[in-house]
Design a protein around this nucleic acid. Sequence first.
DNA 1: ATCGATTTGTTCGTATGTATT
DNA 2: CAATACATACGAACAAATCGA
Lengths: 258, 258
Amino acid sequence: MDGKGKAVIPKMRKVNLSVQLLDAITELVENGSWKPGDKLPNEIELAASFNVSRNIMREAMKILNNFGVLESKAGIGTFVTEGAQANIHSMRFFEKLKRNTSVEKILETRLVIEPDLAYYACLRATNEEIEELDALVKAAEKTWKTRNYFYTEDFGFHMRLAQMSRNDILSNLISTMLDQLKSGEYIQFNQYTKPEERNIRFDDHRRIVEALKKRDALLAQTIMYDHLFGRIRVINPTYGTDLAMCKKIEKKRQKQGS
Amino acid sequence: MDGKGKAVIPKMRKVNLSVQLLDAITELVENGSWKPGDKLPNEIELAASFNVSRNIMREAMKILNNFGVLESKAGIGTFVTEGAQANIHSMRFFEKLKRNTSVEKILETRLVIEPDLAYYACLRATNEEIEELDALVKAAEKTWKTRNYFYTEDFGFHMRLAQMSRNDILSNLISTMLDQLKSGEYIQFNQYTKPEERNIRFDDHRRIVEALKKRDALLAQTIMYDHLFGRIRVINPTYGTDLAMCKKIEKKRQKQGS
DNA sequence: ATCGATTTGTTCGTATGTATT
DNA sequence: CAATACATACGAACAAATCGA
């Protein structure tokens, strides 16, 4: 116990060497030490300079290759990509998405995006797609009566509608938001909604389809807004009680009556 | 050559073994062959069953660990995480983000999100933050007069405002959208905007700050909408020429005059 | 509570394929 | 066609963590 033996080993090997490497390299690119287009030293030198083996080095580099921060070409070398900074930001975004599971923020995100997606879908969907959505709602109507509420139909409707907006970025984001809800406590919470409640929600779906059929984009947008706003209120009854927020809804309602 | 030995090996070694492995494993999780909570065979067996070395196996697993699809614990084993499906979807989302560089879709995404972010920022930003934003605009005003248009100030404003919305998901998405524009041809395109044009755009920024100061969320939202709509029109002069779209803008204008 | 089995974490040596000169 | 430089891939080994007897 006199400090002899392995006491000198630095606290390097705490959790995960390659993850630490990943952070270190990301940092280097982020603060500009390694600029886009730069050629990195070869793997052996790199591994040596970070005091790790080549395999560990490669594990970290593979991750960064996958994220589009680095680009390795056999026989030539490894380079920092153009857009490395951008992809690092996407990495961080993704990191947050995994942890940030506040149901309220997810629903708020949907509240911002989905009404407009309904709007765009109304302008861009083909008649066939609208028919498909109609069939989907009708099918859900049946299942809900016999089986009990099941989120598959609910989420399926929102997903399909999002796709019809022809904006991949936003529809994919909505897709991940729905996934987050699916894997969280939100589902259990909704499992116990009252039947009347369910009917209202699924009635909204039907009305949105009708709006699409009439190609009334503003109406579709408004119904979707109210639909999602109701959901947030279930989670947090005080959401949007500020004057401005209420004002917003009033405005939306006025728009609807045109 | 009579089918003995390793002759059965499928044409696995095309380009990048670990990337192919990644796809293969992702597929297994996605189609439900490997379910959340499942314990995977150990690395040696896995490597054998995929006909690769253990190191390559580890490279693929590290990526999936990083994405939160798998979770490896020393001495125990590797497991499929809860929320593996969700994280795979996010993976795909980011794959698309890297490639999808249609400037119009990026601007459309901003058009959907940023007006509402301005709205929320108006409700949630502290007075100090608004002052900070004000200073930012005033600083930009100076630089633009002396230096020439430079996107740093423009994007900085939008970034800062997005953060003030207190919705991390959306503000991070906007951040990556701006990054995409930064690393694309959009910048060069904007380098040659006429001085009058620039003044209008930067005047919008000032008006948004004023709206924030008055805590008029609807006004801030409207200005931001028009601001971004103008940008899309520069890229695609026919954007939103459909009747409904114009109607929408009219409605927004009416809302403003309240 | 030590021992042994299992499994991931880490390292080294070596061989192969690919692109540059 | 060499020689060179590099990423890619493989195999064997040891270290460290974990669990159960």
